[in-house]
């Protein structure tokens, strides 16, 4: 479980995160939804320590992550996997080396053990015969899969995904969403996903938090997203003409 208490973050005069408190549970896909620029990425990166929050606390189970040093954070980070918005695959390395990267740094496994784990992870994201390809030889969807394979390389307890669907067609998006959701359930991972895609919310959102201009305005499960009386959430959810029509039909 991850617990966030009163998180604040400024960039200069820009107040990006305003008093965020929220909990994320294992075995669930918790979604952070909100418009572009609302602070989703900054929140996610603050959770894993890529941004230093101005104040507030972040707890990973019994460990207060926010007050650890870089070296002390390492132990928690080995249990965190992260999928970045643009996949962030290392472009100097093959697919296999990308997935093996965290193993090279943090395990004493033999070459054959590493290879076995690499193949297991690639297999898990439905990729075969791509070991020796370079990232720029893969489609966007395949890059996301490799990103997920790398994120789960060390069997993480926590998984963070920043807009896993960005740049993908609707069908591939759903496959990636389902993959993340399956892995979350299968290994009982605490998963936090940033998205502005309402399809994802309906598909895999076990818990949903709506963030608007840095404020967590609404929290609930996906069924209630459509019927909330939060004005900002409604204008986010029913932004498109199609969505408005659906709402009218629902009455």
């Amino acid at each position: 479980m991850i617990q966030v208490k009163n998180l604040e973050k400024h960039f200069g005069d820009n107040h990006v995160l305003k008093n965020i408190s929220i909990k994320y549970r294992p075995g669930e896909c918790s979604l952070i939804i909100g418009a572009s620029g609302s602070g989703k990425t900054v929140l996610l990166k603050s959770l894993v320590g890529l941004h230093e929050p101005d104040s507030g606390e972040i707890w990973y189970d019994k460990v207060k992550f926010s007050s650890l040093s870089f070296n002390e954070k390492k132990n928690i980070r080995k249990e965190i996997g992260m999928l970045f918005q643009g996949s962030a695959l290392f472009d100097f390395a093959t697919v296999e080396e990308n997935v093996r990267f965290p193993m090279d740094f943090f395990t004493e496994w033999s070459e054959s053990e590493k290879l076995e784990r690499v193949n297991f992870c690639l297999n898990r994201v439905n990729l075969k015969n791509v070991n020796k390809l370079m990232p720029n030889e893969l489609s966007g969807g395949m890059q996301k899969r490799v990103g997920i394979a790398r994120a789960i390389a060390l069997n993480p307890k926590y998984l963070f995904c920043d807009e896993p669907n960005s740049g993908l067609d609707p069908q591939t998006s759903i496959l990636i969403d389902q993959l993340i959701s399956e892995i979350t359930k299968e290994y009982n991972i605490t998963t936090v996903i940033n998205t502005h895609d309402m399809n994802s919310v309906m598909e895999i959102g076990d818990r949903v938090g709506f963030i608007h201009k840095g404020e967590l305005l609404w929290e609930g499960d996906k069924e209630n997203v459509l019927t909330s009386d939060c004005e900002e959430l409604n204008s986010f959810v029913f932004a498109s003409r199609m969505a408005k029509k659906v709402k009218e039909m629902m009455g």
Partner: peptide, 18 residues
């Protein structure tokens, strides 16, 4: 620089790599 803007450096830092 291109590793920085494509978040590859973030990916390393996040893993706990210096």
């Amino acid at each position: 620089g291109s590793m920085r803007i494509s978040e590859q450096i973030d990916a390393m830092e996040m893993m706990g790599i210096n």
